[in-house]
Design a protein around this nucleic acid. Structure first.
Length: 271
DNA sequence: ACTGGCTCCTGAGGGC
DNA sequence: TGCCCTCAGGAGCCAG
């Protein structure tokens, strides 16, 4: 269920437990993920010290001296810190057992997620190499989007969901950001003005920041498990509200399909 | 270089 | 209660 704020909330939640811990063993129950779980991961990771818990887009990176564990949660994945003896439930595919009785448990019913082992600079890995700037980092602003959109005829919503354009903007927050910026999701990306891209970049940052701040409220509980990241804590203006009144003008929110994904918008407030 | 369509997989929810 | 259908927050890959 994770978009960038959920992945970041997860990162913060697990970082406090994993940083500086040593991996003792892996317990693998199911290796058939989006790519099969590499045997090399099972061989190389035990014994390593976790030096860093980082995020790039929607990927999580557990950094060690020997290599990096690259994790993606797909559509249905989650990570939590559990006690090592806690019985595994269905779809709990991998445990990473660490020192001090810390166990990182990876669960993913749909198995669109990923857990890989990367040696060397993870930024050069094929899955990370082509990813655009972090929306909350330097190098992401309206001027960047405007330049990148030159000549693109696809709808601006598909454009901002392209990981090569900007990292980690998924369906919910693409819908919400376009509503806040007052831009119609089907407007060709190359036909959005520089000024409106400034507004859109600001809206993307704002909606992601708010969602992360809200998700953070659940962090305290991360350890014994009830702390699922707070997906629904942020009040959504358009996503999932087809037919309901637009919070801006009161007209019904519309739902269409773009690239097989649901797009929600207000035809009056978004042009 | 872009674009749209297809694909992996399980589970939830609606209609009948 | 059960069956069948559609849909779901991702994103890599492919042909055109």
């Amino acid at each position: 269920m994770p978009e960038l704020p959920e992945v970041e909330t997860t990162r913060r939640g697990i970082e406090r437990h994993l940083h500086g811990r040593r991996v003792l063993a892996l317990r693998v129950r199911e290796r058939r993920l989006r790519q099969p779980l590499p045997r090399r991961l099972e061989r190389a990771l035990p014994g390593q010290l976790i030096r860093e818990v980082a995020r790039r887009g929607k990927y999580l990176l557990l950094g060690t001296d020997a290599g990096t564990v690259l994790i993606h949660l797909g559509m249905s994945g989650s990570l939590r810190i559990v006690a090592p003896g806690l019985p595994a439930q269905k779809h709990d595919h991998v445990d990473i057992l660490c020192s001090d009785d810390v166990c990182l448990r990876f669960r993913d019913p749909r198995r669109f997620g990923l857990m890989l082992w990367v040696e060397g600079d993870p930024g050069r890995h094929a899955l990370l190499r082509g990813i655009g700037p972090e929306p909350l980092g330097a190098g992401f602003d309206g001027a960047y989007l405007h330049a990148k959109a030159r000549g693109r005829r696809a709808g601006v919503k598909l454009f901002i969901m392209d990981a090569g354009v900007v990292a980690g903007v998924g369906n919910i927050y693409a819908n919400e950001a376009l509503f806040r910026a007052g831009i119609h999701p089907q407007r060709p990306a190359g036909h959005v003005s520089a000024a409106r891209y400034e507004a859109l970049a600001a809206a993307i940052r704002a909606v992601l920041r708010e969602a992360i701040a809200q998700g953070g409220t659940t962090l305290r509980d991360f350890y014994h498990g009830t702390g699922e990241p707070g997906y629904f804590r942020i009040r959504l203006a358009v996503y999932g509200r087809e037919g309901e009144a637009c919070v801006g003008c009161g007209r019904p929110v519309r739902c269409i399909r773009q690239g097989q994904r649901a797009t929600y918008y207000c035809a009056r407030c978004q042009r």
